[in-house]
Design a protein around this nucleic acid. Structure first.
Lengths: 198, 198
DNA sequence: GTCTATATCTAGATAGAC
DNA sequence: GTCTATCTAGATATAGAC
């Protein structure tokens, strides 16, 4: 990585996005996220990022879009690996979410962050919509009688996955030192239970 | 409240804790929590809080203890209001959690925050333990065959409640402007579903 | 395209006046 | 017990050198 002074990146823009994930994964969430810390992580000056992003929010927007894209792919892959039962496939999305966020730090609190709502970034909008579509398709396949119910099933699945993830990140399970895979398994089981009735 | 300069509080210590809840309720969570902002809210100098708490962490510890105490009471009340069915009683705890955190901003991410683990505050420890006992008793009453399973049922219930709450606070439901009570109802329904099998 | 240097802001925490 | 004033530290963002 050569964190020495004066190193020139080939593609600092891409490196900033990648380093932002690492920064988020270290905890503190959006409020603690700092452009300066990301720059330090790459060994460049704190001014360098502003050549590629006009401000902190635009960098976060790019991170949000990348996360939506990657998460949708991770969820689709997990669903396919889960087999053909629609309920198992949606439940697998919850597990995939836990693993993805534990690895990258970028969950729904980043992807759909309120402070990014006003951002005019079409790429990001498309990717967040595609992520939602991926989830809605999985929910619809379980036999939801209406679109409204599919939405609420997705929200419930997201809530349980995000809840486990959030508690894990906040150190709630820290004393017992439970592994990410164990938490992911519990989230999957809980999400599966949501579909046993209604 | 008389936010003018020079006002002397009768009990600034208690006022600081109460104002901290209001501060947390405005969003941003622990990372954004600032002693200076709490002082400003009460119209006192930024130095005043340090007469009552040695540092930011000790103030947060007091808030954590108060929240654990109040939340346990809110959960117990909601369980009693839910009737005699053990599953309904535990599910009601999830709804009570959503309403409590929407009102105060102090959920498990504050009560069990990792940065407070090292704090030697016996009052807080007693209250967080009592909160956990309240939840474990509700879970055990549903017929959990073992202590381990009661713990995991509590964790799942907490996860779903915290997930809804966290997404709500992060603005995930903001566009649809869903009310707190509606979110609480969904959390209750989802928690109830967790108990239909196993 | 990255650097150094800087202006402005906010926070945590302390010293000493009253 | 609270205030004013101050120190330190870290952040956002900009200006101008190379």
């Amino acid at each position: 990585m050569s964190a020495d002074r004066g190193y020139h990146h080939g593609d600092l823009r891409a490196a900033l996005i990648e380093a932002s994930f690492a920064q988020l994964a270290e905890g503190g969430g959006l409020p603690r996220f700092s452009v300066a810390a990301v720059a330090r992580r790459l060994g460049v000056s704190t001014a360098a990022p502003y050549r590629h992003f006009p401000d902190r929010t635009h960098l976060l927007g790019a991170v949000s879009g990348a996360a939506a894209h990657d998460l949708a792919a991770a969820i689709a892959a997990a669903a396919d690996a889960a087999g053909t039962d629609p309920a198992d496939r949606l439940a697998a999305a919850a597990g995939a979410y836990v693993r993805y966020v534990a690895r990258t730090g970028a969950g729904f609190h980043v992807i759909y962050a309120g402070e990014l709502h006003a951002l005019p970034d079409e790429t990001r909008r498309d990717r967040t919509r595609a992520l939602m579509t991926t989830l809605l398709d999985l929910a619809a396949a379980t036999g939801c009688p209406s679109y409204q119910e599919a939405v609420q099933l997705v929200e419930a699945t997201i809530a349980v996955a995000h809840g486990y993830t959030s508690l894990y990140a906040d150190g709630f399970f820290a004393r017992k030192s439970i592994s990410v895979d164990a938490i992911a398994a519990r989230a999957t089981t809980a999400a599966r239970a949501l579909m046993t009735v209604d």
